[in-house]
Design a protein around this nucleic acid. Sequence first.
DNA 1: TTGAAAGCGCTAACAG
DNA 2: CTGTTAGCGCTTTCAA
Lengths: 348, 348
Amino acid sequence: MAGKSSGKHGGSRKRTTIYDLAELAGVSPSAVSAVLNGTWRKRRIGQALAEKIERLAQEQGYSLNMQASGLSREKSDLIGMIVPKYDNRYFGAIVERFEAMARARGLFPIITCTQRDAELEIQAAREMISHQVAYLIATGATDPDRITRLCRAAGVLSFNLDLPGTLAPSVISDNRAGAAALTRLILRASEGRRAPGVPILFVGGRPTEHNTIERIKGFRDAHAEIGITVDDDHILTEDHAPDTAQGALDAYVATHRRSPDALFVGSTIALEGVVRWIVTNPGFASARPHVGCFDWDPMVSLLDRNIVMVRQDVPRMLEALFGMIDGEREDVGVIEIPTEVIQVSPSG
Amino acid sequence: MAGKSSGKHGGSRKRTTIYDLAELAGVSPSAVSAVLNGTWRKRRIGQALAEKIERLAQEQGYSLNMQASGLSREKSDLIGMIVPKYDNRYFGAIVERFEAMARARGLFPIITCTQRDAELEIQAAREMISHQVAYLIATGATDPDRITRLCRAAGVLSFNLDLPGTLAPSVISDNRAGAAALTRLILRASEGRRAPGVPILFVGGRPTEHNTIERIKGFRDAHAEIGITVDDDHILTEDHAPDTAQGALDAYVATHRRSPDALFVGSTIALEGVVRWIVTNPGFASARPHVGCFDWDPMVSLLDRNIVMVRQDVPRMLEALFGMIDGEREDVGVIEIPTEVIQVSPSG
DNA sequence: TTGAAAGCGCTAACAG
DNA sequence: CTGTTAGCGCTTTCAA
């Protein structure tokens, strides 16, 4: 009644170990170990014994201690992924698919989200390394090379996804081509409205980030094709936050004294600010501007046909990623995957 | 040149251990251990020595092996969470906040997503237990009690979030009240359109799932208040998939030969199917039905004022959850957190 | 066919 | 103030 283990939870009930099982079966711990991890055939352990041990393990609710197992075999089945945010479909799709593919390979995926914060990223990487991950994928990392260096020092294989680094292999979207395709579409859609020669307004994204830089290039490419040069006034990039986008648009209108007829938005989360700005702006009551967004959200696509979206090809990106992981190849450079423009047919 | 360790990656470069550090510093491994895990004050180790060791660790890129540490101290700093999907803002918010709060407590969060699949859920739970998580949170689990039983057998503290169980403490939303409030709003909004006495159509959600059951109750409550009895024909619940919702709506119209004027949708993912159905349905070209959705997506809210949404109070839910975790209390039953109706003001 | 034994890297008494 | 020692639970030679 006053027993030590009758506390508020059964947390300290000792777990069954292979020693307990060995005792129950009247065999040695190593036999139990062999049976439980499938190496018993080559140890030529009796079929009958194997079954007996399996049954016992079942009955006792035995569960392998991966901590001990990993320590002993000096490796782990952990594969880590660092991801910036969970607030959009793109990263959501990446994570879901990553987990499924990792599990299919007998790896245990551990994901952690770092809020686009460079410090948190490397702290998380350190922790994952400390937990002995066998591989570490840095997705959309602010400073992928720093993570790669940490991994290298610890002998952990590392890869970059979504945002490239120079030290580890990277799988990213073909941002430039995707942005150009998207820009062309908005240019065409807004043809009647835009004052001739006036470029689209680019909003959202980090100016220092590879993807944003490439998207701006593609954006300029498409303009150049029809003889428009885009000056820096029309590129409003600071970060991905909705409020920043909204503020930048207000500022733009205040200084230029005209509202944009067409917008290129760098991410769905920035789009949130852009849409808020549009719907609360009386000037757009009659006609909303044409919008193109790099990244896809099915609901947005459906609800507003003025918004054209680019979908990154997550399945192909992850095929490429796991291709490298499976081969343990660290020497492949940057792989670029094409994107797809999604447009709900105007007929529907 | 043909050295064993000059393979395609540096994966096998041996990691620095406390023994290496001890050797370099000319002290014992236990001293190093004490310094590195902060217990050196009570061991009254010299300040100078401590600093020297810290520096050495830095230089050598030492990283604690949590596998060994956990094994030794017979505990781990891992806190596991199982989550059904990453395809909506609700679970995204839960996971982001969960991670932050876990880290704030010195725990290492590991999340895994189980696709609303009961088998995957328990497989994932087993794996987490095997990896020695100290706590396991089952979020939106199909069969929480089964997970709790596994945890109990392993001495792991477990908790339920979003969907309640009977064996472990649970934090959930007040689904019934939330659904009633939402229903009232849609009833009022669609007052002019609905044929008198005709109920709203309820779409999406699993009929066996606690939350769906409660939401249906709230839905009926609100109808009852204005004297409408809802027959089962008006409850179309099978699962959360967009296609299912769309199919159910088609079937409804086919048999009832009238289109609904107002809809209550069980989740944002089901809403995707509903919206697709609405926008591709020529019958709604002039006026879309009024929609209420249990769960919130900022973009949807902004883009369509016909859609009213309920936001679950993730911060408060997680406060409650960590309240229980911090106290290691397994005896608190079900905590229900109120929800909030989000409606973009029609003036804007 | 099977068992004994050493060791993975770290921690925590306990003895100095 | 510091080192020695005995594990934590599992894996894996090596002997038998």
